[in-house]
Design a binder for these strands. Structure first.
Lengths: 318, 318
DNA sequence: CTGAAAGCGCTAACAA
DNA sequence: TTGTTAGCGCTTTCAG
């Protein structure tokens, strides 16, 4: 069964391909009667014009790519879901690639999206290496950076002030009278991690006694870590890199009959949907607003650097 | 900045476009020296051949689409992550579309993938209407059905025996001595729902007293439902449509100091990663195996109907 | 309002 | 080993 083309429709309608093309593109210069006839055939045949041919002719792919570090993390799956909702309304499809939490995976993931031809790539750079980003610029691939800010680079960005967010937690913990913090952080080389630690310290003020542990970003690892940690009573508050880690923390604490919010303060970051399920105090990242802004930048090919400030969401755990 | 084409590279290398094309496609008929020179230029210029032109010429898009009902459900985000891992190894990108839990959204979602030109579409049909699937067949769009079985249709399928899975839960509950089941199910019109109810009843044997409630597939709705349900002690076991609902159930029960696994039996379905976090007894769907099979079918354009049988995972909750 | 011609970037088939 | 020709399905341009 051969692929249906404009030509087939044109022959069947007894017109030229151009007329069919005009109908397909809602060009007004078509006789209403001709249009109706063609539309009828189009419908009957379930005709779908070949996107590749259109793109080749100079059009947009109407495809947008997003790179995430781990789609199993609800923060990212919720983000991608939101992106698809927003993009879908503009008839844009979403392709995604996962770095599987490997910093090196970022380059691969971006390349795979570029190779599949997307109008624009959205991604949150993990490290400080920006060579591959400059590269994107040089081949003319549109992109928008999510989450991270590079003051000296001409990158379009929709970034979030991690430091300010973590500050709120530090400040909240201090005001609640906590004195001995434990920080359960993620990859120590990511700028997100560094900024969150910095912000927390500033907010907490009392900096001498904090203890930082770097864990894989996964609830299981955190749960195991806390379960095997003998002297949990050395701490009166735990700031987790994100909600996923915090979920593991809450679970481990409950199993030891330490009640989060009563015996110890626990906070996360992101405000994923499960944060509510776990009664987790956290920092809400305005994902929807960020993505809407990013899509606008993509659609209008605008160069901008826009900052978003997260806000504190207080629940039972702190 | 104009897009770089084969021609630009060819001119710079002083050869014809065909020679460059041969290098790009690892065709052996190129003088090693010429090849090296071209590769050098390719690298220097970060050349990425236009996928649309290749596709137009008759190649594959190396893009695969997947439709899910709700990417925020970890079952699906984990599925998509797994798919991306498997596909990535074969240099295939993943595009996805979300029906946002609306049965009608399925047609839209599939169309949006077809329009973006994917080699194949993977999806789990929600209802009994198969018109749009026959449609896919008629326009020559490759696809593989996930999860559901249509005995009379010539659809390629990788399906799972929901009935057998639910049977195991029913059987397990009965053997544990439960007598008064509550079923918290999803959309009553989905074949998955119907099959799971049927399987459970068969396994439980004692059918007279079960009570079925249909809820939106979301932990929050379930938690609210159970929280407001005054007479929970009318039941001694709860079978949930999936783990997401079961998570809400466990949370609600804990808040009422009813301990799952002790005071009441609770089971889910899917075996998402959080099932472990909640100590949830559930039915594990072999997602990885299913997807690997589906990808093989896609790559080889094979027509097959393959059944997978899930297995019981027993944890604290039952 | 409609059509014919040209060409987007690439590769298959053939020619040299 | 390399180059030439043709054409994939569509839209832009220009002519009718």
């Amino acid at each position: 069964m051969k692929k249906l083309t404009l030509k087939d429709i044109a022959i069947e309608a007894g017109v030229s391909v151009m007329t069919v093309s005009r109908v397909l593109n809602n060009n007004k210069n078509v006789h209403p009667q001709t249009r109706e006839k063609i539309e009828e055939i189009l419908r009957k045949r379930n005709f779908v014009p070949d996107p590749s041919a259109r793109v080749l002719k100079g059009g947009k792919t109407s495809r947008i790519g997003i790179v995430v570090s781990d789609i199993k993390n609800p923060f990212y799956s919720e983000m991608i879901g939101t992106l698809e909702d927003i993009a879908g309304k503009k008839q844009i499809s979403v392709v995604f690639a996962d770095t599987n939490m490997r910093t090196e995976g970022e380059v691969e993931a971006i390349n795979s999206l570029v190779k599949t031809s997307v109008d624009s790539v959205l991604f949150a750079p993990e490290g400080f290496n920006t060579e591959h980003i400059d590269n994107l610029l040089s081949i003319g691939q549109h992109f928008v950076i999510l989450g991270v800010h590079f003051p000296d680079k001409k990158y379009p960005e929709v970034w979030i002030d991690d430091e300010a967010g973590a500050y709120m937690i530090g400040d909240h913990f201090r005001k609640k009278g906590a004195e001995k913090p434990l920080l359960l952080m993620g990859n120590p080389h990511k700028n997100t991690t560094i900024n969150r630690i910095k912000g927390f310290k500033n907010g907490f003020t009392e900096m001498s006694k904090e203890f930082i542990e770097y864990l894989p970003v996964d609830w299981k690892c955190c749960e195991d870590y806390l379960t095997n940690n003998k002297n949990l009573n050395s701490y009166d508050c735990i700031f987790c890199y994100n909600d996923l880690i915090a979920m593991g923390a809450v679970s481990a604490l409950r199993k030891k009959n330490i009640i989060p919010g009563k015996d110890i303060l626990v906070a996360g970051f992101d405000d994923i949907s499960y944060a509510e399920l776990f009664g987790l105090t956290t920092v809400k990242i305005p994902v929807q607003d960020m993505l809407e802004t990013a899509i606008d930048m993509v659609v209008d090919s605008k160069y901008q650097k826009i900052k978003f400030v997260p806000n504190l969401v207080i629940r039972d755990s702190a």
